[in-house]
Design a protein around this nucleic acid. Structure first.
Length: 295
DNA sequence: AACCAGGACACAA
DNA sequence: TTGTGTCATGGT
């Protein structure tokens, strides 16, 4: 009901809401009429960006906004993060091109499930698959106009009850048994997503790797985008392209050496650097000549 | 119209 | 340990 619509304002610095919500870490935000609509903690939210602040609107009264500021990480100071990056040409270009790009703190299950569905898919397709999955198996979420259009992300228990054929109807193809198998292991408490956040990063990664359809890359995405392990460095085809052409020009490098490089060279916020490189490669540097690492 | 996409997995050598 | 085929779908 519109009489229960609730508004608030967060003051922020160096926060590029559009870049953050469209940079391939979350897949449910929709840009319409200059605002961003999404679902956080089973609540519908509309976000609007103005200089120095983010305006938030919900469909129900809110007393404590922590669930949203925690998700957006509005309180994080970007300066020390950027200052911890190595001072090289590619990263300078990436930071200058999309300064204000942030990492979110997402729900672990939604993040995990989304990235299981992400393998060898373009971001537009991942968004489509996730939308179908929510519409089919999620629960209605209250929006200002009522209900029926927006759905929550389905819980593991719900996905675990799906047949593989039902999941394939959401266009996820060979990823269906992966998603189902992972949902079952979580529903059966074989893996407890709630306890990963307090573990050392290597132990948390090892737990995620026990899940079907979860390899190093997807595990690192979840560690970075849901649990806030900022040293996690997911290497997908875009980041691999950046690493090879910007940092290892015409040099063959094995996985072990690559891991050592990403774990040391980019510093304690390597995951942040990764996200800047990813977004930069995917948007700004589509087919430009190689900037190179020198100087 | 080929090529490729925020990969993981089984299997070969 | 490193390389290859396979999986499913659709955007560019």
């Amino acid at each position: 009901m519109s009489d229960r619509v609730c508004h608030t304002v967060f003051s922020v610095h160096d926060y590029d809401l559009a870049a953050t919500l469209s940079s391939g870490q979350a897949f449910r935000w929709e840009h319409r009429e200059g605002a961003w609509d999404g679902v956080v903690d089973r609540q519908w939210v509309r976000l609007r960006s103005t200089p120095g602040q983010i305006l938030a609107q919900t469909s129900a009264p809110v007393e404590d906004w922590f669930w949203l500021t925690d998700y957006l990480r509005t309180e994080e100071n970007l300066e020390p993060v950027l200052a911890s990056f190595p001072d090289d040409v590619p990263l300078r270009a990436a930071v200058n091109a999309c300064r204000g790009l942030r990492l979110l703190r997402q729900d672990p299950w939604e993040c995990l499930a989304s990235f299981i569905l992400s393998s060898t898919k373009q971001i537009v397709q991942i968004r489509q698959i996730v939308a179908l999955l929510c519409r089919r198996f999620g629960e209605p979420v209250t929006v200002p106009g009522g209900t029926g259009e927006i759905f929550s992300f389905p819980m593991p228990e719900r996905i675990a009850r799906c047949t593989e054929a039902e999941l394939r109807e959401c266009k996820m193809g060979f990823r269906a048994p992966y998603l189902r198998g992972t949902a079952q292991k979580i529903a059966e408490s074989e893996v407890d997503l709630n306890c990963l956040g307090t573990m050392p990063v290597d132990a948390a990664r090892a737990e995620l790797l026990r899940l079907p359809g979860v390899g190093r890359k997807i595990a690192d995405c979840v560690l970075l985008f849901a649990y806030g392990f900022q040293e996690a460095f997911p290497v997908d085809v875009w980041v691999m392209k950046a690493l090879r052409q910007l940092y290892f020009p015409r040099r063959r490098v094995n996985r072990k050496r690559l891991d050592k490089f990403t774990a040391t060279y980019f510093g304690p916020n390597a995951g942040y650097a990764q996200q800047y490189l990813f977004h930069y490669m995917r948007t700004k540097a589509k087919s430009k000549p190689n900037p190179g690492i020198e100087t």
